[in-house]
Design a protein around this nucleic acid. Structure first.
Lengths: 113, 113
DNA sequence: TTGACATATTCCTATATAGGAATATATATT
DNA sequence: AATATATATTCCTATATAGGAATATGTCAA
């Protein structure tokens, strides 16, 4: 079996750095494709293709305005990712605490000498 | 160009559902490979391969214990993901608020009739 | 209608899997 | 030393890109 399609879910879609850049930019608000092309310095077909993937997984919404297509980020789509990563929050705070404790212990031992 | 390697960063590594399952299980604490194989119902070579990817991006740590290899999640590696998704938090709360407002407005209009 | 502008789609190719099967490596036990 | 146990690696293949180049589609303006 090959890797899952980039369109299979938000996790796969967002694995591509360019698509994260696009979402970052669209976090500012609704923008036409041309803006993305200019500000992000990508080729226009490339932007359109990435936007298509993002649309298929529900990470952006579109509407037509004259001959422009206005895209906006649909933050709701990122939420599952946020929720998943959140479940590890307690782990990293705990693991950092332990690291700090070990460092302090070493310091104390050095002082005793 | 093809898709970026699964080992290029945490985003790519975590795009694979099986690897998320492995991390979820390892969130409970240090576990040998055999436990993962049994509890997650995956083939042993498959688990080993996924663990290798997770190791290469720093999402798990290993140590040998007799003939077992004990793996543990390194939550710190998930943090960048959490931080990135967090930047959209204000967006989805805001977008949900607007949705709610529109729903209430419609309700009011219906009541006026 | 014709042309200009904005965006989308198609075609092409090098590359990277994920999983199954088979096998290799490392360590413990007897 | 021989065997069992635990895990890792190799080989194979179908599949899915991402980007570049070229082209198609849709819409406005004169």
């Amino acid at each position: 079996m090959a890797r899952a399609a980039t369109t299979s879910d938000a996790f796969n879609a967002v694995a591509e750095p360019r698509r994260r850049e696009i979402l970052d930019y669209l976090a500012q608000g609704e923008r036409p494709v041309g803006d993305l092309v200019e500000k992000l310095g990508m080729e226009q077909p490339s932007v359109s293709k990435h936007l298509k993937v993002l649309r298929q997984v529900g990470l952006v919404r579109v509407r037509r305005h004259g001959r422009q297509m206005l895209y906006q980020a649909n933050a709701e789509g990122i939420r599952p990712l946020h929720e998943w990563t959140k479940t590890f929050e307690r782990l990293w705070t705990h693991q950092l605490l332990r690291l700090k404790e070990r460092a302090e212990q070493k310091e104390r031992q050095a002082a005793e000498k």
